[in-house]
Design a protein around this nucleic acid. Structure first.
Length: 1046
RNA sequence: GGGCGAUUAGCUCAGUUGGCUAGAGCAUCUCGUUUACACCGAGAGGGUCGGGGGUUCGAGCCCCUCAUCGCCCA
């Protein structure tokens, strides 16, 4: 049964709550998101930056995904075979830490209580739940991802890619195991990467200790003084260092200070001079002592390490700074990154004093079992008791903290797996330098290149259970012969295949064979990497006593493969062949190095082709105080709250319009009072954003925030966190909806027919010309990722051109039976084009209007009529023939707009009621009159003003209001209406302004230098403009004189 | 310490290769319920373009410098 559609049924507001889900389902069931390789079409591919499965999406994700969807939708409409590949990231450490904490909180169990298999099982459950929530959020936002292809970085397809890549790099010896000082999170019991460490400044102390010198010679000191912020690490000291040439070092510092002084501002001089003076004193007082210590070091003097009761050498190294402290520094190679370097240079032993859980190990004697912090107190006490504590200073110290657990990081010497970066990094630098991979905005190239340029090896092992387990089986070999035998045994295994297993021999890092023997260290460790899940071989290796590596890979290892692992690599799938390399990557700046660079590396290594040709880095969203948004601060906005209040289109439009090339966008945040009748927006402050309950200052009712915990608080309604910055976009959606509604209400009797060019009026040609220009601008802007420009162009066109002028003018024509049919056709066509252009940014409302338009005018077109596509998502992109571009018409129309503006201004300043009909005349030349003539009637409908006459010789009415502009005069007949005071006031103001401008221009033009050097065109422009201003002034003066006489 | 960026109306932001009187939205004020829209319409007021110096006929834009803020790296 079909009912006749009645446009009166269309509500005056877009009911986005119900429409969004319906429309989204229709897109999905229509298969519009799915892309299959098709040689007849060009591919356009984007892979989503996979959100972590740790929690819910925030506004940053909303921004990121909006930008991707806008591009994907435009490309789809442009006829590309557009694929947006979705998925999520297992986010190893973040997720495991989160689930572990939850289990600890709820069940009081640690991961060790559960065991590896059970913990991993629990995390999978968590993942299922959160992944669904995240994908649900993306769908609510309207993201047109190909959900049939959804991947997860830990699924079988990705696992296969990881294994293949690992094997390949292992075989090329680009993966190796080695002892390294890593950032150890004692709470989580794992390494964290540098990027997961945040340095925090805290108040600490600087302890000065004295270490006794063994057998000092006459004249030599009996103690050396060292200072440290970490006293407990002294148990692992293996040397004390002094600078090899303290005099030269001091001189160098001094000359640097002097250079700084020259450049510095006056206000800094005093401070720098103080430093120079202090340095000179130091030279006087300490240099000879330091040189003596240096000589002692060179002479091989040993020190007694207190408490540990070991002998350690005094050595020379440039790390010791003669300008600081005592000039001597204790060296703890296994627990400090700088000392580690010294240790390597000086060939010092490296003594690890810590267990993985952050307690001290057996190396520390009586301190064993104490946590670092406990040991600190005890070490200080014990040294004091021995009389070796010289001094304690208060001092701000930099403390490395783990992002993941929030606990202090311990530098820790362990066996870790690394990717050798030199060649790989270079390849990734080359493709950006050559422009094969284009980064927008360009300023981010610098950071990318300098980070890769360091070519630091990438530590890829993590002591976690949630992740890709490293596919290496290892066994220690006490001596060379054992290793040789083991290799022979492995090669003789039934399942052994050189293509599937690769063997590496790791020589012990302890190069002294005697020491190795002493410590019971093996000469070699044999590592076998097994390519695919060849269980038979794995079993056989294990039967030979090889044990699989427990560690898993850094999350970024699997993320780095994302652009091709999602397409099925290493299988040679038709998807990989067709969609790779992808077209664009849209992401935020904090992961340029962690992710973007590594994808380029892996793409080049695995496929010999870059993973994408274009990278767009978008801004970050900050709150009104310029702080990053986060749930932990309470200033985070849930995209779903914005969608609930303003609609998904408003969220998207708002996001896109914020995307300029600057780094950050500020978004003031408000609580919204949940009381239906109130809905007050309460600005968020640093104070109220952490309260569990907030009282609405307007209606005095209370509501709860994300912090509410008590039972009473939880009973209150929730006050969502939103931002009024989406209001503009919401209002725009409403405007668009209602303009379209107006069109539907006026389509009765519509009959499709081609539009004949001679029938086109000035405003028709104008809107076509505007449509052409706007579609060009929008296309160019979006292709260059200039989202804010695109949305601004669309907003201005839709509101100011289409609604305020075109539709307004059409009202007149639609009411005239003779002109109605043509007006309907051109209105339908213009709306059709506008919807196409807006669809990528605001897909829901445009799709809803499209559906309506199809009910009333399915057949439409400009010169050729055809049936519109059923869904806007599948319609073609708006591209008018360039023949419609018409600057003359645009100028002509601008004149009309300008006259209309003047009439409205006079109305307003004369306080004339809008309905009060007025008459006006234009004094102008014939040309001007001819160009205004076709639109003369519209002044009636748009300003209730009748154009009485036009031309060079029109007589000004006896009593009038005047506006002189563009070389013409507009006189409004005000017989019996005029407010003389208002008119005089306004004319005088005008006069003053004109005089000011004229003086300025005359001055400029009398400047010979200007006339002589500026381009002739500019000078002429100034002359013309001066001429016109003078003419206007004459007219204004005449009008004033007339009022003076009257 | 090094790098990147920002500073334009009360607020949030535009401003192209240097060139007419520096724009928009919100907020404010005045007027208006006109048959699509009050999430609306018409109009108005509001700016030493962070400070200082320089280049230029001409600087919001280019150069130097200072200040404040943000981010990244050490």
């Amino acid at each position: 049964m079909t009912t006749t559609p009645d446009p009166q049924d269309i509500p005056s507001r877009f009911d986005f709550e119900t429409a969004q889900d319906k429309i989204y389902d229709a897109w999905q069931s229509g298969g519009w998101f799915h892309a299959e390789p098709d040689s007849k079409k060009k591919p356009y591919t984007i892979v989503i930056p996979p959100p972590n499965v740790t929690g819910a999406l925030h506004l940053g994700h909303a921004l990121n995904n909006t930008l991707q969807d806008v591009v994907i939708r435009m490309k789809r409409m442009q006829g590309f075979n557009a694929l947006w590949m979705p998925g999520t990231d297992h986010a190893g450490i973040a997720t495991q830490a989160r689930v572990e904490k939850r289990i600890k909180d709820l069940e009081g169990k640690s991961r060790h209580d559960l065991g590896r298999a059970e913990l991993v099982n629990r995390i999978w459950q968590w993942k299922e739940q959160y992944e669904e929530r995240i994908l649900g959020q993306l769908k609510k936002m309207g993201c047109s991802c190909d959900w049939e292809r959804t991947r997860f970085t830990l699924d079988d397809t990705c696992a296969r890619a990881v294994r293949k890549t690992f094997f390949d790099l292992f075989q090329k010896s680009l993966i190796y195991r080695g002892k390294r000082l890593v950032n150890w999170d004692t709470h989580l019991g794992t390494t964290v990467s540098d990027d997961e460490v945040e340095n925090k400044s805290i108040n600490g102390h600087f302890w000065h200790f004295m270490y006794p010198v063994i057998d000092p010679k006459p004249g030599e000191p009996h103690h050396v003084t060292v200072a440290t912020t970490r006293p407990e690490t002294m148990l692992g000291d293996t040397a004390v260092a002094v600078h090899p040439d303290p005099a030269a070092a001091l001189s160098k510092v001094e000359s640097e200070l002097k250079a700084k002084l020259k450049k510095a501002a006056d206000s800094e001089h005093a401070a720098i001079n103080d430093q120079i003076e202090a340095l000179a004193n130091r030279r006087k007082e300490m240099l000879s002592d330091l040189e003596l210590l240096r000589d002692m070091a060179n002479d091989g003097r040993m020190l007694k390490l207190p408490l540990a009761d070991r002998e350690i050498p005094l050595v020379t190294d440039v790390w010791a700074k003669p300008e600081l402290g005592s000039g001597c520094v204790k060296i703890t190679p296994a627990h400090d990154p700088n000392d580690y370097e010294v240790g390597k240079r000086a060939g010092l032993p490296m003594i690890n004093i810590m267990n993985a859980d952050g307690t001290l190990n057996a190396e520390t004697g009586s301190y064993v079992g104490l946590y670092m912090k406990q040991a600190r107190t005890k070490v200080v006490d014990d040294l004091e008791a021995l009389g070796l504590l010289k001094e304690v200073e208060d001092r701000a110290i930099e403390m490395p903290m783990s992002d993941r657990s929030g606990t202090p990081i311990e530098p820790y010497l362990t066996d870790q797996w690394f990717v050798k970066m030199d060649q790989l990094a270079q390849s990734a630098m080359d493709v950006v330098e050559s422009g094969e991979v284009k980064i927008t905005p360009e300023r981010y190239i610098k950071g990318y290149l300098s980070w890769l340029g360091e070519k630091r090896d990438w530590p890829i092992s993590r002591q976690l259970w949630w992740g890709h387990q490293i596919p290496v089986w290892s066994k220690a070999c006490p001596a060379q012969a054992d290793a040789d035998k083991l290799i022979a045994d492995i090669k003789a295994l039934k399942s052994f295949d050189e293509n599937l297993a690769s063997i590496q021999t790791e020589a012990s890092s302890e190069t002294d064979s005697e020491k190795r023997a002493q410590l019971g260290l093996p000469d070699f460790t044999l590592h076998v990497c097994v390519e695919d899940a060849s269980e038979a071989l794995e079993k056989e290796l294990e039967s030979l006593g090889l044990v699989r590596e427990e560690d898993v890979l850094d999350t970024w290892f699997s993320s780095a493969l994302w652009p091709f692992s999602t397409l099925g690599w290493p299988e040679k799938t038709k998807e990989l062949d067709y969609f790779y390399p992808t077209s664009a990557l849209i992401t935020s700046r904090d992961i340029i190095t962690l992710w973007v660079a590594r994808m380029v590396i892996m793409g080049l290594n695995n496929l010999g082709q870059v993973p994408f040709n274009s990278v767009f880095i978008h801004p970050k969203i900050l709150d009104g105080n310029g702080e990053t948004m986060s749930k932990s601060k309470g200033n985070g906005i849930d995209p779903l709250d914005v969608i609930d209040k303003f609609g998904a289109d408003a969220l998207r439009f708002g996001m896109a319009s914020l995307t300029t090339e600057t780094q950050d966008v500020r978004m003031p945040v408000q609580f919204e009072c949940p009381v239906e009748s109130c809905q007050a927006a309460i600005p968020q402050t640093v104070k109220n954003r952490v309260l569990p309950v907030v009282e609405c200052p307007k209606c005095k009712n209370k509501f709860r925030t994300q912090w509410a915990e008590s039972e009473d608080d939880l009973k209150l309604p929730r006050g969502p966190v939103i931002s009024e910055r989406f209001e503009v976009a919401r209002n725009f959606m409403n405007k668009l909806w209602n303009a379209s509604r107006f069109a539907m209400l006026n389509l009765e009797g519509y009959e499709a027919a081609p539009i004949k060019e001679p029938d086109l009026t000035v405003e028709d040609r104008w809107i076509l010309s505007r449509l052409y220009t706007v579609s060009q601008n929008v296309t160019e802007a979006l292709e260059g990722y200039r989202y804010a420009e695109a949305t601004r162009t669309l907003y201005n066109f839709a509101w100011d051109n289409f609604c305020s002028f075109f539709v307004e003018i059409l009202k007149d024509r639609l009411a005239d039976p003779d002109r109605r049919a043509h007006a309907q056709r051109i209105l339908v066509f213009a709306l059709d084009q506008l919807l196409r252009m807006l669809h990528p940014v605001t897909p829901f409302v445009t799709e809803a209007i499209w559906e309506q338009l199809n009910r009333f005018a399915a057949e439409r077109g400009l010169e050729k009529v055809s049936t519109a596509s059923e869904c806007l998502i599948g319609a073609s992109w708006a591209e008018l023939d360039s023949k419609w571009a018409n600057t003359e018409i645009e100028t002509q129309f601008a004149r009309f707009q300008s006259v209309l503006g003047s009439l409205r201004e006079i109305r307003s300043r004369q306080n004339l009621p809008p309905k009060k009909a007025i008459k006006f005349l234009i004094r102008c030349d014939e040309d001007y009159a001819a160009s205004i003539e076709p639109m003369g009637g519209y002044f009636n409908s748009m300003a209730a003003a009748e154009l009485v006459s036009m031309g060079a010789n029109v007589e000004a009415p006896e009593i009038n209001a005047l506006i002189a502009q563009d070389g013409i005069e507009i006189f409004v007949d005000l017989e019996g209406l005029i407010d003389v005071d208002a008119e005089v006031k306004r004319l005088e103001k005008e006069k003053k302004k004109l005089e000011g401008n004229i003086t300025g221009k005359e001055k400029k033009l009398s400047n010979e230098k200007f006339v002589g050097s500026a381009p002739a065109e500019i000078v002429q422009r100034e002359r013309d403009s001066l001429e016109q201003l003078k003419e206007q002034l004459v007219k204004v003066n005449a009008a004033l004189e007339k009022f003076a006489k009257a």
